[in-house]
Write a protein that binds this DNA or RNA. Structure first.
Length: 402
RNA sequence: GGGGAGAUACCAAAGCGGCCAACUGGGCCAGACUGUAAAUCUGGUGGCUUAUGCCUUCGACGGUUCGAAUCCGUCUCUCCCCA
């Protein structure tokens, strides 16, 4: 297939991996596949329960991309059936079951976003409803009989939830089995996941063995924590999404803790170890800015990445105003005695409510044309020119009256 | 099937008849400081056209009371123990 040496081939898999069960199996299977002139089938499941991918997913996708380029077949499973259960991994709560319609909508954006990293023309995509919809209850029972309750309770997430007296739905036990069954159906050679997925991956291995297939190799990659140190998740609001603007991406990276930078460099950029070491040995702010630029550039292109960095420097380091302040037209008629500032801030969307705006003003966070407003009850007369409004550090608007 | 415990704001968790828009911690927002949207410190964290005021909130619905998150009834949901 290509001139890769066996050692290089294996190294592609090993780089960055936390668990590799079993590495010896992998070496053997890899050699066999190469001898037959093909690559391995590498499975990765995506749970379309939240609408957008974030850089936490990118860790896995970058790995898949490298493997794809090395000639392996990537099999993407969109878990539209499993999404209706909700993966118990890393959760301490029962997750709401999603409706088909929700899943359907998420699925479209998901695959499109995955295409930002993977070559989708060479990627096999399946929804697991393809096989789960065809199952009868009898089939479900048969599948459920392949694992024991004790085995399921080994999962630390279930254990923690039991201790915390949180409810656990019976259907949640089905999740690992469903994910494992996916492996059987697509005859996967390797399944990739985050470290929190190891249990699920191993269930797939067991099931394949019971179905007389060669058990898949289970490979996990480190989880990247979100901006607040918790697991990165859109629902925690601590994620950098694929759809974030370059400026958002850069800014979020700049708010990372210094000590996680190394992981981010290794897992999300193509920089080699030597360069990473040099960066981390230098000035932290510089290193972090480089990281932000790399990430913004990967998703939006070099120019956008650089522009994001420049914009951030101007706004936060040099404390200049951003260049792209939105201009807001105030459409309503302007009362003769002016508009209360708190109300104005709400109406143009700078604050969530007028009470919120009042608090901001009391805290000294509101500026009009650069001057801090001290009076909570200030009324604003109809401006003759553009009026610059600042609510906190990040929200700006130029107001124009009708 | 039997017995017990519980449901409070984004999360956790106090409050158990008026002093409660509700202690405290986390998160979040803002201010100061800074290499940063880090750390630290300080303040804030239902809504209202302007407030030592008004309106809505403590699982749901009813009731008692001058007055209820707090007492009573029914319902919904959760956890634990026994079978």
């Amino acid at each position: 297939m290509n001139a890769l040496s066996a050692a290089d081939d294996l190294a592609h898999f090993r780089r960055g991996a936390v668990d590799l069960v079993e590495e010896r199996d992998l070496a053997a299977r890899l050699a066999k596949a190469r001898a037959a002139g093909r690559g391995l089938r590498v499975k990765f499941g995506m749970d379309p329960s939240s609408p957008d991918l974030h850089v936490g997913h990118a860790v896995q996708l970058m790995k898949l991309r490298a493997l794809q380029q090395a000639g392996h077949t990537i099999v993407l499973i969109v878990g539209d059936a499993t999404a209706m259960v909700g993966d118990p991994s890393g959760r301490n709560k029962l997750r709401p079951q999603l409706s088909r319609a929700d899943v359907e909508a998420n699925l479209v954006t998901y695959t499109a976003q995955a295409g930002k990293v993977l070559d989708m023309t060479r990627t096999e995509v399946h929804r697991n409803s393809e096989w789960f919809d065809a199952m009868r209850f009898e089939d479900v029972l048969r599948l459920a009989s392949k694992a024991t309750v004790a085995r399921m309770l080994e999962r630390d997430t279930f254990e923690k939830r039991m201790e915390a007296k949180e409810p656990i739905g019976v259907h949640e036990f089905l999740y690992p089995l469903m994910q494992g069954w996916d492996s059987v159906m697509i005859r996967s050679d390797v399944e990739l996941g985050g470290t929190d997925q190891l249990f699920n991956l191993l269930v797939g291995r067991d099931l394949q063995e019971k179905e007389n297939q060669a058990p898949q190799i289970c490979m996990t990659l480190p989880l990247i924590n979100g901006l607040d140190g918790r697991k990165m998740s859109k629902s925690y609001g601590n994620a950098i999404a694929f759809t974030d603007s370059p400026a958002e991406m850069f800014g979020k990276v700049m708010s990372l803790r210094d000590d996680v930078m190394g992981d981010w460099f290794r897992l999300l950029t193509g920089l080699d170890e030597g360069e990473i070491a040099t960066l981390l040995g230098g000035h932290f702010r510089e290193a972090k800015a480089r990281l932000g630029e790399e990430i913004a550039s990967f998703f939006h292109g070099r120019d956008a990445g650089r522009a994001a960095r420049d914009g951030f420097d101007r706004q936060f380091r040099d404390k200049e105003l951003p260049t792209d302040i939105p201009v807001v037209e105030y459409a309503k008629p302007w009362p003769a005695d002016g508009v209360p500032l708190a109300v104005l801030l709400r109406e143009i969307g700078l604050c969530a409510s007028s009470s919120d705006a009042r608090r901001l003003i009391e805290g000294g966070g509101v500026k009009l044309d650069g001057a801090v407003v001290a009076d909570v009850n200030a009324r604003i007369a109809r401006p003759t020119a553009e009026l610059l409004l600042q609510a906190g550090k990040r929200k700006f608007a130029k107001l124009r009256a009708q």
